[in-house]
Simulated assay, not measured.
Amino acid sequence: MSHLPEHLLVGYRNFMKGRYAAESERYVSLAREGQAPETMLIACCDSRSAPETIFDSGPGELFVLRNVGNLIPPFEPDQEFHSTSAALEFAVDVLKVKNIVIMGHGRCGGIRAALAQGGKPLKPGDFIGKWMSLIHTAAAAVASTSVMTATERETALERISVRYSLNNLRTFPQIKAREEAGELTLYGAWFDISAGELWAMNRETGDFERPSLD
């Protein structure tokens, strides 16, 4: 009887024979000296949009936070549990990252759920609906737009949600202060799963544009 799913064990064996064997010294160095990534990347939990794969990143290069819909809540210093805020605090205050990137993606289930309910919770007390209510105002506005197809509405809200989360990042005092001091830069991105296209948010206009690959 295996203590882990077989496909994970197969993947681990391949990892040990491949990437770990090729970069063992780097792993040993990271274990001994600790991590010092320059970039924090906030992405969705969706299994199809793994940041390390999309950006071909090696060990220690990205500090990754993933949650449903790649959302950032506003700064709320209360006595509740805040995993996303805790990760942000660690990245900014301890690791001193220089960049924070929020990356949305196409065909996002969380975004689709928010649109289906106009931003309202799916049912009383549910976790996903409550979480996605962070973008209730935008979801309600986009859902009511009849001139767009369902796919167009999803893409629009996926990108709008990135801008919402960037605004919420700036409600964290330490993030706002470091950005204003030129010590931290905030970015937005959107990844199209079906085409493999990456779109970067223009930091001046908010528009999403294809970066040059040359």
Results as ranks from 00 to 15, higher is better:
residue 67 N to C: 11
residue 68 V to R: 03
residue 69 G to Y: 10
residue 69 G to W: 11
residue 70 N to T: 11
residue 71 L to A: 09
residue 71 L to Y: 07
residue 73 P to D: 12
residue 74 P to N: 12
residue 74 P to V: 15
residue 75 F to N: 14
residue 75 F to E: 11
residue 76 E to P: 00
residue 76 E to N: 13
residue 77 P to K: 04
residue 77 P to T: 04
residue 78 D to R: 04
residue 78 D to H: 06
residue 78 D to P: 03
residue 79 Q to S: 09
residue 79 Q to W: 01
residue 83 S to I: 03
residue 83 S to Y: 05
residue 85 S to Q: 12
residue 85 S to Y: 06
residue 86 A to Y: 08
residue 87 A to N: 03
residue 88 L to A: 05
residue 89 E to F: 01
residue 89 E to A: 05
residue 90 F to C: 03
residue 90 F to T: 05
residue 91 A to H: 01
residue 91 A to L: 01
residue 93 D to Q: 13
residue 95 L to T: 13
residue 96 K to S: 15
residue 97 V to R: 11
residue 97 V to S: 10
residue 97 V to W: 11
residue 98 K to T: 11
residue 98 K to V: 04
residue 99 N to T: 03
residue 99 N to M: 00
residue 100 I to D: 01
residue 102 I to N: 06
residue 103 M to P: 00
residue 104 G to M: 03
residue 104 G to L: 04
residue 105 H to C: 06
residue 107 R to D: 15
residue 108 C to F: 13
residue 109 G to V: 08
residue 109 G to Q: 09
residue 109 G to K: 08
residue 110 G to V: 09
residue 111 I to K: 08
residue 111 I to W: 09
residue 112 R to Y: 01
residue 113 A to G: 02
residue 114 A to D: 01
residue 114 A to F: 01
residue 114 A to N: 01
residue 117 Q to E: 03
residue 118 G to V: 02
residue 118 G to M: 03
residue 120 K to T: 06
residue 120 K to N: 14
residue 120 K to E: 15
residue 121 P to E: 06
residue 121 P to V: 04
residue 121 P to H: 04
